[in-house]
């Protein structure tokens, strides 16, 4: 087991930067997720860690080893692909045994370790099957068993769940997290799905245009996003332009909202829809008119128009009210609900 340290990693194809100076420290045993839209450089970063792409700049360290110039087959990594990438001509057992055979492990040890790995992913008794005779979820579990059986220093997962249907995705991600905790193996996963990322990660690294925008725990990223891109990538958000004045954010239309920890120089305020409280008209807060109200079972989704003309999206749990279009109410934004940020441009 070992941590991973990536320093100013960059990959350029001719004039185009796919990855542009990524520095990351993944702690021993940590589950880090690289999250971002397609084309943000997350897969290229993962492939540089795996050794399939040679970096234009920077270095990759696994534990104390600098592996930047090592080929993939000398890095001792476990890799799980989106399309499973099982060996179609080998049985499940032989798929899992492949890495052990390359390491010249004895036949008896191979048998026990393969059996242990298969039972870890709940595939006891499937050893004699061929991949084509298995479902997508089972194939992905074989791929996971094949990657962990070699006791790799790090586990790299490239969109491992995106080929599975919704229910299976939910189950497999739970299993993945459980397995990772049990084995205590340093893991980096790439995904574009923020739910998936949030649910498994110890920490997230949100990427855009080849750079890491923010690194933090899921709640840090969600509650205190560093910029507008991160805020909207990990969830819904309301944004208001304006300026910070000693703990008060003043919107363009003149609304004054007290905000905790407001940095001077902030020019944008972000408010999550579920961080807004709804109160009867006349209560302390922002006067608002309901423009649309949609009942979703678990709660309400409201589009409000504030006195200054701004819109505010709100998601509120179902507390027995019945919100109607045109209704007047008060939106309460607690000082801790808003996050000030600098958009820079």
């Amino acid at each position: 087991m070992a941590g991973i340290r990536i320093e100013s990693l960059a990959k350029r194809y001719n004039a185009v930067s796919a990855v542009d100076g990524v520095t990351l420290d993944v702690r021993d045993g940590e589950f880090l997720v690289l999250l971002g839209p397609s084309g943000c450089g997350k897969t290229t970063t993962l492939r540089m860690i795996a050794g399939f792409v040679a970096p234009s700049e920077g270095c990759v360290r696994i534990g104390a080893r600098d592996v930047t110039h090592e080929p993939p087959y000398r890095r001792n990594i476990g890799l799980v692909f989106q399309n499973y990438a099982l060996f179609p001509h080998l049985t499940v057992e032989e798929n899992v045994a492949f890495g052990l055979r390359r390491r010249r492990v004895g036949e008896a040890a191979i048998r026990t370790r393969v059996a242990t790995a298969l039972s870890r992913v709940k595939l006891d008794g499937f050893g004699g099957r061929y991949p084509r005779a298995m479902s997508g979820g089972q194939q992905q579990r074989v791929a996971i068993a094949r990657a962990i059986v070699i006791e790799p220093d790090v586990l790299l997962l490239d969109e491992p769940l995106s080929n599975l249907d919704a229910q299976l995705r939910h189950d497999v991600r739970g299993e993945l997290r459980r397995l990772q905790t049990e084995l205590g193996i340093t893991t980096i996963m790439v995904t574009h799905d923020q739910d998936e990322a949030m649910s498994v990660a110890d920490r997230l690294a949100v990427m855009e245009k080849g750079q890491v925008r923010q690194v933090g725990t899921p709640s840090e990223i969600y509650r205190r996003p560093a910029d507008r891109f991160v805020a909207s990538f990990v969830g819904r958000a309301n944004f208001y332009a304006g300026r910070a004045e000693r703990g008060i954010f003043v919107t363009a239309s003149g609304l004054r909202l007290p905000v905790a920890d407001l940095a001077e120089g902030a020019d944008t305020l972000m408010i999550r829809p579920e961080a807004v409280g709804l109160r009867p008209a006349g209560a302390d807060g922002l006067a608002a008119t309901v423009e649309t109200a949609t009942y979703l079972g678990a709660g309400w989704e409201l589009e409000l128009r504030l006195a200054g003309g701004e819109r505010l999206s709100v998601v509120a749990p179902d507390a027995g009210e019945h919100w109607r279009q045109g209704q007047i109410l008060t939106a309460h934004v607690a000082p801790t609900a808003g996050v000030g940020m600098r958009t820079g441009s």
Binding site: P71, A85, R146
Partner: peptide, 18 residues
């Protein structure tokens, strides 16, 4: 041939020839 299958083999410690 799906290249990720070959990459899987490389990641498991097989040299390009193997």
């Amino acid at each position: 041939v799906n290249r990720s299958v070959e990459e899987a083999a490389l990641s498991l410690g097989a040299s390009p020839l193997v």
